[in-house]
């Protein structure tokens, strides 16, 4: 028994199997790379090579088409799970200095009395992303945009590190004894709404999603409505816009009221 005896076209098994396999490959390749592309009536190819590249999945520049009006800016922030983890003491210190200018709305201890978000103990990546978006114009606010305009990346990271470093104190919101609303526990799978906690903390925390417990009810309701109307559009891949659009007004009210009434100290720390 030798390889030479097997791998020769004198061996009928070898020639037949290699011939059939190669033949099938060529035939299917002709079908997949030439015949099928040309059968697609709605696509026009400049050349045969163009058709083959398209079928091979080679990314190519789209044909010159008139570009419509440029839409509003979208977020350019990229977050990874380990970003901003373990900031230096210096960074936190610089952030504390910079945070003096935030205190007027967000409170000297990071707890707001002005229906602005409570920032004490918020995830650094959340503050970082929102500030980047305010600066780039992906999110606009008459108050926040000017504050963010002149900050460098490092300064934004410092502020985020400082607020993440502060302890989560109970906020000034009344305790409510209402049951957990359905939209919060289950979401609404048929409308593509996941339970809030699958990103915002109680089940799992996804990078860039804030914890919501004890935040201002008014603020959360306003943000959901802004997502729903498309006025706010700095959510990556439209996650929040898709969710908010599918929520009813009542569900928005319930979710905002529920989270506002929860104490923030129940949120697990991610670091």
């Amino acid at each position: 028994m030798s390889t030479r005896e097997l791998f020769t076209f004198k061996n009928a098994y070898f020639s037949a199997s290699v011939g059939i396999t190669a033949g099938l490959f060529v035939l299917t390749a002709l079908g997949g790379f030439i015949l099928l592309p040309y059968l697609q009536k709605e696509v026009r190819f400049a050349s045969l090579w163009d058709a083959i590249c398209s079928a091979a999945g080679l990314p190519q520049r789209a044909a010159a088409v008139a570009t419509g009006k440029v839409g509003p800016r979208l977020t350019e922030a990229v977050l990874t799970p380990t970003m901003l983890a373990r900031p230096s003491q210096e960074s936190i210190g610089r952030g504390a200095t910079l945070a003096h200018r935030c205190a007027i709305c967000h409170g000297p201890t990071g707890l707001s009395r002005a229906d602005s978000p409570n920032l004490a103990g918020q995830y650094a990546s959340v503050i970082y992303k929102q500030m980047l978006d305010f600066r780039s114009g992906a999110r606009t606010s008459a108050i926040m945009s000017p504050f963010a305009a002149d900050l460098t990346d490092q300064e934004i990271a410092d502020v985020a590190a400082y607020y993440a470093y502060l302890p989560r104190l109970p906020a000034y919101h009344p305790e409510r004894k209402a049951p957990k609303p359905r939209i919060v526990i289950y979401g609404a799978p048929l409308r593509g709404i996941a339970p809030c906690g699958s990103c915002h903390g109680s089940l799992d925390n996804k990078v860039g999603s804030p914890w919501l417990e004890g935040q201002s009810e008014v603020y959360m309701r306003e943000q959901l409505l802004a997502f729903a109307s498309g006025q706010r559009r700095n959510d990556i891949s439209q996650q929040m816009r898709n969710i908010a659009r599918a929520m009813t007004q009542q569900e928005i009210d319930e979710a905002a009221a529920y989270y506002a009434s929860q104490p923030p100290d129940v949120v697990k720390a991610v670091d």
């Binding site: 099938l24 299917t28 099928l36 592309p37 079928a55 999945g57």
Partner: peptide
């Protein structure tokens, strides 16, 4: 994945 390869795999 390109449509051409999807076709080849489908046929095989």
């Amino acid at each position: 994945v390109g449509a051409g390869f999807k076709f080849i795999h489908s046929a095989f």
